[in-house]
Design a protein around this nucleic acid. Structure first.
Lengths: 222, 222
DNA sequence: ACCTGAACACCGTTCAAGT
DNA sequence: ACCTGAACACCGTTCAAGT
């Protein structure tokens, strides 16, 4: 009753607990849901207590983003070949951003600078193992990371657009139908691929993109 | 004096003028700068007048984004080969987002849905011209678009981080130095490429990425 | 050192009233 | 049909006061 109660009721406030609560709120309610009111209610304090540990809301978002990325990269990727490991790291980030869609917006914001080395390092080591000559490491790794984050961001954005209860099949069908109804003169191509969009799988397509880039790297151009 | 004055003083309010003013404010002051106060001052009205033409702020941001993207894609890309045209379209978008960095955040937000067909169409036509078999059009085009937007978004984010008066060389040097001071055990790779980051050119690297993807497409994998 | 909570300036949005 | 501008609810941040 004594010690246990104290621990359960209100563990001392800390940066870690604040970031943890922020991630939970962001997951549940999105970026718009993360307010100091929501935070203080969840942590049972006043705003001043939070400002003691964190400079402002931007820093909070950056810290929450870094926490999610760090967790995603902490999983040691299975797969023996360097190619498989690149795919595993890429998919790990893709899934993490898919589960925490608000991360996408943050990664193309200023919090980027703190998290960049983590991602560069994890992808870059495998680029080295791929046999890419050292003078191309920076370029090749940057391209891979840009593709990974770009694709993951758009996937997350698509997911966010949906109301939580919508059927994915219905949604894709609705988008495809919209595309098919576009002006044939201006949108001939988009109309043609509408049907392929109807049946595509996001993760499969993401991996196809990784394979495309890997094929380009192996082809040894650029 | 009579008609001219009326025209100069306050051209009738319209959705178009509101979007135009929004783009100008976003360019000058970023996303945080676009407030209804700033808009009403610039357009010399009250907030109610703006709400008559536009549903809410989100719609305003989406419309501003679409205007910038449409303008970037309206330029007919020079270059004879399909490969050159892909590069030209890609670079057009890259530069547009570089000039209007706030577009980056919007393109991975929900406004995406309205602008997507424009970009798909423009890139996709050249993918067709590349000789890619039709069943792969959707995948290949999506990969290209994801890379283009992902890379452009990160480039824009990097630009935004800088104070407007900072020297680019100094900034890159500072980041590279930070990387070189990372823990050698955890960041062996990142330390190795720090020097390449110091001297890289963003546009060149972006095009190298396009070439990598194009090489992958030509290699015929995936 | 850490926390409280009232207070401040500001923001998006609404709406009754005007023309 | 289009515009005005006061009013509302809410938000991030500060700070004097407490322990």
């Amino acid at each position: 009753m004594w010690v246990a109660t104290r621990a359960r009721r209100s563990e001392a406030l800390s940066r870690e607990r604040i970031v943890e609560a922020s991630v939970a709120i962001l997951d549940a309610a999105g970026e718009a849901g993360l307010t100091f009111k929501a935070l203080t209610e969840r942590l049972v304090t006043g705003p001043g207590a939070i400002y003691w540990h964190v400079a402002n809301k931007d820093e909070l978002l950056a810290a929450a983003t870094d926490a999610v990325v760090a967790a995603a990269l902490a999983v040691e990727p299975a797969g023996s070949s360097a190619q498989d490991q690149v795919r595993a790291v890429a998919l790990g980030l893709f899934d993490a951003i898919d589960e925490h869609p608000w991360v996408a917006a943050q990664l193309s914001a200023s919090s980027w600078q703190a998290t960049a080395p983590r991602i560069l390092e994890s992808v870059g080591r495998r680029v080295g193992a791929l046999g890419v000559p050292q003078r191309r490491w920076f370029t090749v790794t940057s391209v891979l990371v840009q593709y990974i984050l770009g694709a993951a961001a758009q996937n997350a954005a698509n997911g966010r657009t949906l109301a939580p209860d919508t059927d994915r099949g219905e949604f894709l069908d609705a988008v495809a139908t919209t595309w098919e109804e576009l002006d044939p003169d201006d949108y001939a191509f988009t109309r043609t691929i509408a049907d392929q969009m109807r049946e595509h799988d996001d993760r499969e397509q993401f991996l196809a993109g990784i394979d495309l880039v890997l094929a380009g790297i192996t082809a040894g151009e650029a």
